[in-house]
Nucleic acid binder design. Structure first.
Ligand SMILES: [Mn+2]
Ligand SMILES: [Mn+2]
Ligand SMILES: [Mn+2]
Ligand SMILES: [Mn+2]
Lengths: 220, 220
DNA sequence: TACAATTTTTAGACTAATCTAAAAATATTT
DNA sequence: AAATATTTTTAGATTAGTCTAAAAATTGTA
C-alpha cells in the first residue's frame, strides 16, 4: 500500500508532532530523516496529494487522520518486532532497533495480528515505549523519570527516554535494566546525582543525566 | 549488501539452473520473474559486472560461486521465515510463501542465525523443501513422490512438488498434509489413480496427478 | 523600514529498475 | 542457402527517490 519511504516520512513527522505542537518544518523533517530539505519538499508534496498530510508552502505540514493512522501502524509494527527480537530471539535491547527499522515495512496485516498474539499482546516494547493497538489506541502508562522521585521512594525500571545505543549500553554496563527494582537512598544536592539501591542489594551512584533518562513505574 | 531485486534475480536464476542443466536464457528468466526480456538483459549486465554471474551476449547466463551463495542464502532465509510463520504463528502452509517473499530480504545475518536457533534448526520448510545451512550446504533428503510407491507400501507425507496455492488448498481440503501416514491400498490400472488409507483410518482415492505431486518418506 | 540571514522551494540532474518499440542476432524451415 | 520466425539486445522513455545549486520567501535585526 505505502512504500518504505512514505512510511518512514510519516513516522518521522508523527514523532515530531508528538514532541512539539504546531507545524512541522521542512528542515525539522530533513533533520529527522537524515536527508536534504529539497528532498523533503518533494516528498511532502506527494504525501499531500495522497491526502496523508496538509501542506502549505513555507508553512510546514500537519498529518491528516489518515496519515497519522499509517504512522501509528508503522510504530506498532516497529515495536512489536522489537519485542519479538528481544523476547523471543534474545537480542539485547540495544540491538533491536535497526532490524525493526526494516521489519516494520513488511506488508501483511494478518502477520502483525498473529505476531501480536504470539507475543501475548504486549503493552510495551523493550525500551518501555507503549505499543499501539490494532485500532491505533495508545495507552499512556503512568511512568515518570527516575529524577522525579524523592528520597526513600521505590520503583521499577520500565524504559528509557534517550534511545541511543550509547545510553542503552551504559545502562547494561551498570546493570540497570527494565525490571530492576530501585530505591532512592539519597539525592546529592550539589549535582543532583542519585545514590540508589538496586534489587535491594547493590548500591549505585548515577548522574542526574542518567536519572533523567530512566523511565520508572512507582511502587505503590 | 544486495538489493531486493538483485536477490530475486539471483534466486530465480539459481532455481532455473537447478532444474535444467546448461545455460539459462533471457526469456526463461523473464518468465520466472514476471518481467520483460529487455529488463532482464539490463539486470543481467549489472549482475555480471558485480561478478555474480557470467554473461555472454545471446548465450545466456551462469551463476558464479559468489552469485550462487547469495541465491542459496536467500532461499535459506525464505524457508526459515516460512517455517517460522507456519510453526510459530500458525499460518496455513498455503499462506506463508507471499510473506516470506518479503521477509527473505531483511538484512541481518545475526537475525537469521537466531531465528534458525529459535526454530530448532529445522531441516525442511512447511512444503518439505530442504533448508540450506549457514554455509550453503543443502542436505537432500531421501524422498520420493507418492506415485512411485507400490501396493501395500507405507509412507509419511513430507512435502509437495507443485507449490501452487490451488494444489496446497486441495490437499488441505482432502486432509492430506505433512505428517499424514499413508498406506497404498490399490493402484487402479486404468488411470493410475490411487486408493490410499490415511492415518490407518480414512479411505481416499486420489488422482495420478495428485500422487505425482506429493513427496513422501517411505516407512522402513 | 530596509538590509541581512535563514529557510524553503524550484530547476535540473542522477540512479535503479522498469517498459515499449525497433534493430540485430540466432534458430528453424523450406 | 535463402527466407522466415524467434530470441535477444539496444535505444529511448518513465517513475520513485535523491541530490546540488540557484531563486524566492520568510524571519530577524539595525
Ligand atoms: Mn526502535
Ligand atoms: Mn523504517
Ligand atoms: Mn516459498
Ligand atoms: Mn523475494
Amino acid at each position: 500500500m505505502y512504500s518504505f519511504t512514505e512510511e518512514n516520512y510519516l513516522k518521522a513527522i508523527y514523532k515530531l508532532s508528538d514532541n512539539k505542537a504546531g507545524e512541522i518544518t521542512t528542515n525539522a523533517i530533513a533533520d529527522a530523516m537524515q536527508t536534504k530539505a529539497a528532498s523533503v519538499t518533494d516528498m511532502v508534496k506527494k504525501l499531500a496529494e495522497k491526502q496523508l498530510l496538509k501542506y502549505e508552502k513555507y508553512k510546514g505540514v500537519k498529518l491528516s487522520a489518515k496519515g497519522r493512522k499509517v504512522a501509528i501502524d508503522t510504530v506498532r509494527k516497529h515495536r512489536l518486532w522489537e519485542t519479538f527480537l528481544h523476547n523471543k530471539l534474545n537480542f539485547k535491547w540495544d540491538e533491536v532497533h535497526e532490524i525493526a527499522e526494516q521489519l516494520e515495512h513488511i506488508q501483511s496485516e494478518t502477520l502483525i495480528d498473529k505476531l501480536d498474539d504470539f507475543l501475548g499482546y504486549p503493552a510495551h516494547d523493550p525500551h518501555g515505549d507503549p505499543i499501539p493497538g490494532k485500532n491505533g489506541e495508545i495507552k499512556m502508562h503512568d511512568v515518570v523519570t527516575l529524577s522525579n522521585l524523592k528520597k526513600g521512594d521505590r520503583c521499577v525500571v520500565v524504559g528509557v527516554v534517550d534511545h541511543r545505543t550509547i545510553f542503552l549500553k551504559h545502562l547494561q554496563k551498570i546493570n540497570l535494566m527494565p525490571g530492576s527494582k530501585i530505591q532512592v537512598s539519597t539525592i546529592n544536592e550539589f549535582d543532583q546525582s542519585h545514590n540508589i539501591k538496586v534489587n535491594r542489594n547493590i548500591e549505585l551512584q548515577i548522574s542526574f543525566d542518567v536519572a533523567k533518562n530512566i523511565l520508572v513505574k512507582i511502587d505503590s
